[in-house]
Design a protein around this nucleic acid. Structure first.
Lengths: 202, 202
DNA sequence: TAATATACGGAGGTAGCCTCCGTTTTGCAA
DNA sequence: TTGCAAAACGGAGGCTACCTCCGTATATTA
């Protein structure tokens, strides 16, 4: 390699030497937009190649930005998930803790409803203990944990609830057939679950 | 509409002219065995080609017997599912209807536990309104419907329960991370759900 | 403007899916 | 038995998607 290394005048501990390239950022955005559209139109199984094509970039570029298919989905739905998480404080201000939890669970269904596709990948992400980074899953987990914690503290629900259990149930409840009725069904289950939660101990 | 049939000396309404070929039946069995082993060892994503190889048959043969990957899984787990369905009458004899339902739900978890792989494909099958034939899903649906019906009739649980809702919840509850704790988590949720079910109306 | 870190693109190797059709096997009738 | 047609087999091959690799292009910085 280059012998000049020995001098090493300016070693940067933070290699944040340059600012990120503009084209990179732009392409990333193009990819996310294209992916969103493609997922909606074609389904969760669109080939990554098609997404790249729609975005007008090469497949290599897609892979550089998102090493896995999951990463693409993650990027697409992060925003929605953030909104779900952001709803928590407001709910807690406005309602008693038990109600806040309940309402949030319904909100969850609404979101899943609009972006149906999120469920499978959320499920998958819950399945593998996903990455170390802050994934959408963690955002959600945080949200529901807060709500459950409050609800328990206020005595509105039983104490032996593991928030991630609950998340899993909700994913499960909204995972399933694309019938017209699925949403109603999910709501019914949420309500039943909530009734179960309210039984203090048993 | 069968008035003309009288002439018709030997019309076979059942074209069961020949008995099914022996090699066909044998290969089918070989395939199912191979698939079972392969799923267990490699995972649900084994290539169908590998399954055929293990069974010692050509890929074409596999496809002739099972047109889709789902069909393979279906065949493999039908037996387990049948056992689940068969447990119903006995449970109903031995326990009050509410308890029977509750116990069966736990049994479900047990089964899923031993054959973890069934969950994803059950989920998938519930998702697409699967085939017209009697699938495993329908067996399960029948089982849970019976239990729920009895439980409702006996007044043990609320009336507004859709059995397939419940099935979906159970699949969801057992769908998810392969952690050691998943099973306990699933059981907790089942119990909570059951508590919810017991609230008559609200 | 030159130098260089950064990003791009897409060809190409790999693998799984599924179909199609020539060959083989099996059941049945004579 | 034997002959033959129906039934089943096998696997080559076409297709599509995945993902990597590296020569080329471009944005930044000095």
């Amino acid at each position: 390699m280059s012998g000049a290394d020995q001098i090493d005048v300016k070693r940067k501990p933070t290699p944040r030497v340059r600012k990120p390239r503009a084209d990179s950022a732009r392409n990333r955005q193009l990819l996310i937009d294209a992916a969103k559209a493609a997922f909606a139109e074609v389904g969760l199984n669109v080939s990554l190649e098609e997404i790249a094509r729609r975005a007008g970039v090469g497949i290599g570029t897609l892979y550089r930005h998102f090493p896995t298919r999951e990463a693409v989905v993650e990027a697409v739905y992060r925003r929605e998930v953030e909104q779900l998480a952001e709803a928590v404080p407001q709910l807690l201000e406005t309602w008693p803790a038990g109600e806040a939890l309940h309402k949030w669970m319904h909100l969850f269904i609404d979101y899943i409803a609009t972006k149906r596709l999120i469920a499978p990948s959320l499920g998958a992400a819950v399945a593998r203990k996903s990455t170390l980074h802050t994934t959408s899953v963690e955002l959600i987990t945080g949200a529901i944990s807060t709500l459950v914690g409050r609800a328990i503290a206020s005595g509105a629900v039983r104490k032996d609830i593991d928030p991630s259990d609950l998340l899993r149930a909700m994913v499960g409840v909204s995972y399933g057939n694309p019938d017209a009725g699925w949403q109603a069904s999910a709501r019914r289950l949420i309500d039943i679950l909530m009734d179960g939660l309210r039984r203090k101990s048993r």
